[in-house]
């Protein structure tokens, strides 16, 4: 079943068209990888799924983008509520300069959860889901900035999970991490897809092959091909896809 369905999505930065007629379905409780060379529009596409592009001046978006039955670019859409359903993890780990506990509790607190007991539960549950609990349970009140890069990124995942989103967007979540931390995050993603719909932008073809179920290949603002990951990597229909996944360009 499609969790997100995109039809004829066009996005402009001023006069520059960054996305051209994107049509793409994102399946529920699967990992969809967006691959493609730098500047191909995959991050821009990811950011249009939770309307983070709204923050940039001069962005214009046309087309249909539905989260289940709801068109998320309709005028009366509550963007804040949308972002609670569609969480996001960024390229560079960006924990707040606050304690580990306060980082995870940040979203729920803004949502209006105040009692310590509820927050304690959410923090513990989220950190466990992000496979970080065992490492930090004795220093929840310590600064999040004291964690290693990989731990910080898992904290950011826990922070997003604390909002109990339905979809988790990940923008090259391991590109700033070493191989061991990367492996941990990849394991985590495979675990998380049991509960969440995950869309991940990645530069690493191996990563896409290892963890994703579906893969979409972006080139110059267009989706060249979208299929199951296995087909994309073994029997791509388009010559350009083949060239890219076999490393002939990009």
């Amino acid at each position: 079943m499609s969790k997100i369905s995109v039809k004829d999505l066009n996005l402009f930065y001023g006069d520059f068209q960054a996305l051209k007629n994107i049509t793409l379905n994102i399946e529920e409780k699967k990992v969809t990888a967006l691959i493609g060379p730098s500047g191909c529009g995959k991050s821009t596409f990811l950011r249009s799924l939770n309307r983070m592009n709204d923050l940039i001046d001069g962005v214009k978006i046309k087309g249909d983008l539905k989260l289940e039955e709801q068109d998320i670019y309709q005028k009366d859409v509550d963007v804040v509520a949308l972002r609670r359903r569609v969480g996001m993890v960024f390229q560079k780990p960006n924990p707040f300069p606050k304690s580990i506990y306060e980082n995870v509790a940040y979203g729920p607190r803004r949502y209006g959860i105040k009692t310590r007991k509820q927050l304690d539960e959410i923090v513990e549950k989220s950190l466990k889901k992000a496979a970080l609990w065992e490492e930090v349970k004795d220093r929840l009140s310590k600064s999040a900035l004291g964690l290693s890069g990989g731990q910080q990124q898992r904290l950011c995942i826990a922070r997003a999970l604390a909002m109990e989103p339905e979809v988790l967007l990940m923008d090259e979540p391991t590109s700033a991490l070493d191989p061991i931390a990367t492996a941990k995050i990849e394991e985590l993603i495979v675990e998380l897809k049991k509960e969440y719909t995950i869309v991940i932008v990645t530069h690493s073809m191996q990563q896409a092959a290892r963890i994703s179920d579906e893969t979409a290949f972006f080139l110059m603002g267009e989706v060249v091909e979208v299929d199951t990951t296995q087909k994309i990597f073994t029997k791509p229909r388009d010559k350009r896809t083949e060239d890219y996944v076999t490393g002939r360009f990009g």
Binding site: V80, Y106, R110
Partner: peptide, 20 residues
């Protein structure tokens, strides 16, 4: 990135300014 993180967590703009 702090502003983005906060907004992506479903905080309003005002909350983002106040808390982050």
């Amino acid at each position: 990135s702090y502003r983005e993180a906060s907004l992506a967590l479903g905080a309003t703009k005002l909350q983002t300014i106040q808390k982050v």
